[in-house]
Amino acid sequence: MARSSPHDKSVRLWDASTGACLQSLSIDKDKGVDELAFSPDGSRFYIKLFYSCSIYDTETYTHIEDVDAVSWAMSRQGDRIVTTTETDKARVKVWNATTGQELLAINEGQTQPGLVTFSPDGGEVLLTCEANETVSIYDSWTGQLRRTLRPSNIPRFVMYSPDGKHVVFVDEHKGVEVYGGKSGAFVGKVEGYGDNAKCHAAQLLPDGQTLLLHHSIGGPRGDDRHVHLYNIRDLVRIR
C-alpha cells in the first residue's frame, strides 16, 4: 500500500497486512505527486509527478529511472508505459515498464497532446488532442497511425471495455460517446447530464457494458451529487 504526504513531500509504502511503514521516499519539494501505482506483478512502484514518472524497485526501494510524462498509462500486461511529453518533438513515447528504457517515439506533431491509454490487448495506443479536436489511435509497436476519430467534444475521461470492443469518451458537461474499439465506428451517445451537471469520475464496471458516472449538480460547490449507470449497448440509463 502506498500514500503520498503533502506535508513533508514524501511517499510512504506500508505493509497492507500489518500497517507497518516499510519505506519513506523523499520527493523534490517543487514537484507535486499526481498518482501512485504498482505494476501488476508488484515488482515495480511508480510515482507520477507533474511532468515525469519515477520507477522504483518494490523489493529494494531502489530508484530505477525517470521518464518524461505529462499524462501516462500502463498496459494491462504490465510490460510497457505510454506517456505524453511537452519537452520533446516526439509527443508520445512508449517505455519499458521495468527498466524505463525508451522503446518507441511517435512524432504526433501536435502541441497539445491530452489523454493517452493502451487498448486492452496492448496492441494500440490512443491519444486525445485538444489542438485539432481529434483522437488518434496508433500501433503501439511501430507507431503507425491506424485510425483517427472525431468525437463531438474532447473527453475528460477515456476508457476501453475489457474486451476491447468499445472505447468510451466522457465529457465533463456534454455527455458520453461510444465508438467501436477496432472499427472506430460511432456506436451511440448520451447527450448531457442535465442543467449545471458536471461529471467528476467515470468507470466501466467489470461486465464491460455498464458505465458508472459520478455527477455533481448545482452551484460552484456542486453539493448535490449523483451516481448514474448506463448500459453502453443501448445507452439507456438503467438507474
Results as ranks from 00 to 15, higher is better:
E102W: 00
Y51W: 10
T62Y: 01
C53V: 14
I64C: 06
R76I: 05
T117Y: 02
E102R: 07
K89E: 09
T62D: 14
I64D: 03
T87P: 04
L49E: 15
R76Q: 11
S54H: 10
S52P: 10
Y61M: 13
N96V: 07
V67A: 06
K89N: 08
S52G: 14
E86K: 14
Y51T: 15
V67P: 02
Q112G: 00
M74E: 10
E59I: 05
S54G: 03
F50H: 11
D68C: 02
A69H: 02
F50S: 13
T99W: 06
T87S: 15
A90F: 00
P113T: 11
L103G: 01
S71K: 15
L49I: 06
C53M: 15
S119K: 05
I64V: 15
F50W: 11
A90W: 00
I81P: 01
L115C: 14
P113A: 12
K48A: 12
T84E: 02
T111R: 13
D66W: 04
Q110G: 09
R76P: 03
T99C: 08
T87Q: 14
I55W: 04
I47S: 03
V67S: 04
R91A: 06
P113G: 08
L104P: 02
Q101Y: 03
D66E: 13
A73F: 07
F118L: 10
S54P: 00
E86Q: 14
T62S: 12
M74W: 06
T98S: 13
E65S: 12
D68H: 07
A105Y: 02
P113M: 13
Q112H: 05
I106K: 01
Q112E: 11
F50G: 09
T111V: 07
M74Q: 05
D66I: 06
D66V: 07
G109E: 12
V116C: 08
V92A: 05
P113Q: 14
S75T: 09
C53E: 13
V116Y: 02
T85L: 06
R91E: 09
C53R: 05
I64N: 03
A73M: 12
S52Y: 09
W95I: 06
S52W: 07
T117Q: 08
A73S: 15
R91W: 01
T111K: 13
I64H: 03
G100Q: 05
W72V: 07
R80L: 04
A69K: 04
D88G: 03
S54L: 11
G100R: 02
E86H: 11
K93D: 04
L115S: 13
D68I: 00
E102F: 00
L104T: 04
N96T: 09
Q110S: 14
L103F: 03
T87H: 15
E65L: 02
S119G: 08
